[in-house]
């Protein structure tokens, strides 16, 4: 698509392809997420990371080593991880005396931290603690946000955006109706808790076309509380949310829809030259030889006149 702009040229075709893939694209796929651990992690957080990894799976990467990272003091190693794995989201689990059962969720833009939110995992029940059937991997879930608080503070607004980004999977044009089998609800309660619940959707008969929905909890069941946050500056967020010109839908001219939903179009036609319209050919309308000759002579005289005039003008 584009010419490689690197000082050192890739030597192999495969290398070139890899680099091209890493370049900014007009249409980006699902954001990949990396999961890693801090200096120390509690069992709870470890399991949580594992479960979230399972939910996110085809677009996720679990890093197994411990990392000596204090992300709010120095985010550089995390940015390096994201660059290495070409992923835009990260989840870091850690556990310390000061901040027990800690989970940091964040996003990067252009390989630098866009926003991150630190959460305290208060209660946690994993996927395995629910004995129900699980859903198939990779289904697009229904996301449900409950509570008035989501729109009231900047932190929660950002967290909502992060949650949508994390769980919504790829953008699709169409979904299979029977394939809607996962529903995740996020509840921001007035006591400052954020409760994540995940359900399997059962579509039952209802007597009408639309089915009756029944839910069955499949886990994980997590209660978060907010800790530290790093919100993006409005400029950066605006920059990150920019849409490529190619994807913007331009306004179509001369098309309008009236109240009844009928589409009206306005067509512009060129000037009608009635004299030149080819009508039905009839023998009687045909020019005779004399008429043709006269027309020819007339044209000749006119052109000569023109030449003379031009000469005079010169």
């Amino acid at each position: 698509m584009s010419v490689l702009q690197r000082v050192v040229k890739p030597t192999t075709h495969k290398g070139k392809k890899v680099l091209l893939k890493k370049e900014p694209q007009i249409i980006e796929g699902t954001k990949r997420a990396i999961f890693f651990k801090g200096r120390k992690t509690s069992e709870k957080v470890r399991n949580l990371l594992k479960d979230l990894y399972l939910i996110k799976k085809p677009d996720a990467q679990m890093l197994n080593k411990k990392n000596d990272i204090t992300i709010f003091e120095n985010p550089q190693p995390v940015e390096a991880f994201c660059k290495k794995h070409d992923s835009a989201m990260f989840l870091m689990g850690s556990h310390s005396k000061k901040r027990p059962d800690n989970l940091v969720v964040g996003r990067t833009f252009n390989y630098s931290i866009l926003d991150m939110i630190e959460l305290y995992v208060e209660n946690y029940d994993g996927l395995q603690e629910f004995a129900n059937d699980k859903i198939t991997v990779g289904t697009k879930p229904c996301l449900i946000f409950n509570g008035t608080l989501w729109e009231q503070s900047d932190e929660l607004k950002q967290l909502k955006s992060i949650f949508i980004d994390f769980f919504h999977r790829e953008e699709v044009e169409a979904v299979r109706l029977q394939g809607l089998e996962h529903s995740i609800s996020f509840n921001a309660t007035p006591d400052g808790k954020i409760c994540l619940r995940s359900y399997k959707v059962l579509l039952k008969k209802s007597g009408v076309r639309t089915p009756r929905v029944e839910l069955e909890e499949i886990g994980p069941r997590i209660d978060f509380t907010l800790r530290r946050t790093k919100l993006p500056s409005p400029d950066l967020m605006k920059d990150a949310c920019k849409k490529p010109k190619e994807l913007k839908v331009g306004k179509k001219k001369n098309i309008s829809t009236d109240a009844l939903g009928t589409t009206h179009g306005r067509i512009h036609i060129g000037k009608q030259e009635i004299n030149k319209i080819q009508t039905r050919k009839l023998k009687g309308l045909k020019k005779t030889m004399q008429e043709k000759k006269a027309a020819k002579r007339k044209a000749l005289v006119e052109s000569n006149d023109g030449v003379e005039k031009r000469q005079r003008a010169d």
């Binding site: 584009s2 370049e23 954001k31 252009n110 169409a174 299979r176 029977q178 990150a240 949310c241």
Partner: peptide, 28 residues
């Protein structure tokens, strides 16, 4: 619409603005 025995529903374009991963590519 029906695609190979499955009923697919066409979704409208997403309204939620989510940040991109990398900046919009500039014309070379």
């Amino acid at each position: 619409e029906r695609v190979e025995e499955a009923v697919m529903v066409k979704l409208p374009p997403a309204k939620t603005l989510l940040p991109r991963m990398k900046p919009v590519p500039k014309p070379k």
